[in-house]
Design a binder for these strands. Structure first.
Lengths: 352, 352
DNA sequence: GCTGGCACTCGTCGCAGCGGAGTGCTAATT
DNA sequence: AATTAGCACTCCGCTGCGACGAGTGCCAGC
């Protein structure tokens, strides 16, 4: 059952490639007769049957029942996308649509949402984009408002458009004036820095320099610490085109569909899965059960991290049935990730 | 085809009631034999057949095919919920769950989301709650930040927790200091007032009193106008438990399901539908096609507006198959609406 | 080593037959 | 006049059967 490429000669691989391509385009188990008609193979059905038997022994294909053709297994798809696939150049129409959507950043639209919708719309599958990591998120303004019961509402603005808010619990009740002062102080020293470095700086301040700070400054720093402590901002993503998945017959089983949509609304599992792609640069693919999540059993995910200034800040993906046109989707996801990264680059956006 | 109640005698109505109840609990077309066994009716199958024929003539029931018993039509359900239904008191377990979830307002949780999730969880259908109208939304703090290109980022905080933001286009570029001043001015005069009255006041100012304001005040008012102009805050809702709907066989048709979920993600249609309930106090029901939206053809919505200080501020609903246990859902929605209204009442929450 | 031929397996389709559930109608009963 | 019993009828759903087609595995010949 080793699906090592060396166990197979060129012809078998070629045949597997044709088989997978054929299955992807037709959705029907493909038999020896059909493949025998392929001019590039030019083999008789009987020979093809022999080769297919080999492929089946290696676990690359299987037949749903005795007298149906063969369909690729997960390993078969894996081998296909890893070694056999010939990626197609992107459709020019798609390129322009992506470019339009992701380069011109008009005010109210959020790039992440646009990217997600584009992924879904142009692939007719589901698109998902994680929100970018805080590393590229720069503090623009911070402010505190008093609530009752020792609670403080923190509002902070990042980059251009995003406004975040959080409620923190403080050790005592503060007056509006005190909080205003704290905000002004923090603004003066942390504006323009990214959230990660702020967090580190805050921690350092708290450890090192207590004596050279006055009480108000200390309180302000404490509040900043509460605001930016890790995990404060739970990860999230923007999903689009889920309903497209309902049209695929291989996913339209009620229970599968339910599991899938439940996974989408719980988010957590999806986040974990996508996070695995943050390590690698470029496109990565999860085929069927490879994901390890039952909900995605008959799905494939084509993911790519996206980066700003050479640093990975998030992940995007297209989710569809295992039987998808990988040769198109892969370059598509790749390009989208790059364009999104570029669109998020603070240098290319208007200065503060 | 008039389904006037007067066309029917007590017995026929009683029989219709039994029939609908039976169909709701079993999901099978109900025939004369089954109903004849009901001790309260105590009629022979033949008599029941006669009555059923009458009901069918009036359009209250229909048979899927010649020998298949009867199922209620939309009119049948309508008559049932309007005149025949005997509502059941709420399950005590449900009451306590609702009470727990909606009375204690801890910090981070949003009541609207909790309400929506409770509706879904306790009914095992989908729950939806519209965000409350701005009339009960009080301005707590407003602030402006400069962006590039004559744009200004407005952040305003309402009630306790909610932070809103919006980008407005101004006639010229303002400095941070100017904007701060404008914010301070607006805070001083509009804090604590609700958004509707602010909008009116702003418009009045712009018309009446131009001469007695200085330039800065005028600019501030103009910005407030842009911020609070109507339609600025598009309506929205929180949905929960959509996936529950996938379990109902009568909705599990692929196309219907797709339409339904598309309607959910586009939101707009749902909002329109729910808005119709803002006029009435109390529970309202849309059965099947009554909603006018194809996506909800085989669904019923049990809606109720919810009010704060006797003013309707939003709508909540349970969405499920037409064949749902109305006698339980109706009081359930009713109570949830009342509890939510109470939870939102600013008087009962901690003061500013 | 490849290929043609052949027997075999399975799934699908159409068809017929049958039982069950339920109806509508009519005639008898109260 | 209303209710009921009886009966013929309709229609769904199930089952079994045979034909068909697609595709396989294997063997023998090229």
């Amino acid at each position: 059952m080793s699906n090592n490429t060396r166990d197979l000669n060129e012809r078998s691989l070629q045949l597997l490639k044709k088989l997978v391509e054929r299955y992807i385009s037709d959705g029907q188990p493909v038999g020896s007769r059909i493949l025998s008609k392929d001019p590039e193979l030019n083999l008789s059905p009987a020979t093809i049957r022999n080769v297919m038997a080999d492929l089946e022994e290696l676990g690359l294909v299987r037949s749903p029942h005795t007298s149906a053709g063969r369909v690729p297994t997960v390993s078969g798809y894996r081998l296909f996308v890893d070694s056999l696939l010939t990626v197609k150049p992107l459709d020019t129409k798609d390129i322009t649509r992506l470019y339009q959507g992701l380069s011109e950043r008009d005010d109210t639209s959020d790039v992440i949402g646009v990217a997600s919708r584009l992924l879904a719309e142009l692939t007719q599958m589901a698109g998902v984009v994680t929100l970018p990591k805080r590393d590229i998120v720069f503090l623009r303004h911070i402010e505190f408002l008093p609530l009752s019961h020792k609670r403080v509402l923190v509002i902070f603005v990042t980059n251009e458009q995003e406004v975040h808010n959080k409620i923190i619990h403080t050790s005592k009740d503060f007056s509006a004036a005190e909080l205003q002062q704290a905000g002004a102080y923090l603004n003066s020293i942390y504006c323009g820095r990214n959230l990660s470095t702020i967090r580190e700086a805050v921690l350092k301040e708290l450890q090192d320099d207590r004596e050279r700070m006055n009480q108000a400054m200390l309180e302000a720093i404490k509040m900043a610490q509460l605001t930016f402590e890790s995990g404060s901002e739970e990860d999230d993503y923007v999903l689009a085109g889920e309903t497209n998945l309902m049209s695929f017959s291989e996913l339209s089983d009620r229970d599968h569909l339910k599991k899938l949509f439940e996974a989408f609304s719980q988010k957590q599992g999806v986040i974990h899965l996508l996070d695995q792609s943050t390590k690698a640069q470029g496109v990565q693919i999860f085929i069927g059960e490879e994901s390890g999540y039952q909900a995605f059993d008959h799905c494939s995910l084509v993911t790519s991290s996206y980066s700003v200034s050479d640093e990975v800040v998030g992940v995007l993906a297209v989710i569809g049935p295992t039987r998808m046109a990988y040769e198109k989707i892969i370059p598509f996801v790749d390009v989208t990730a790059k364009l999104l990264g570029a669109a998020l680059n603070p240098k290319s956006t208007s200065p503060l």
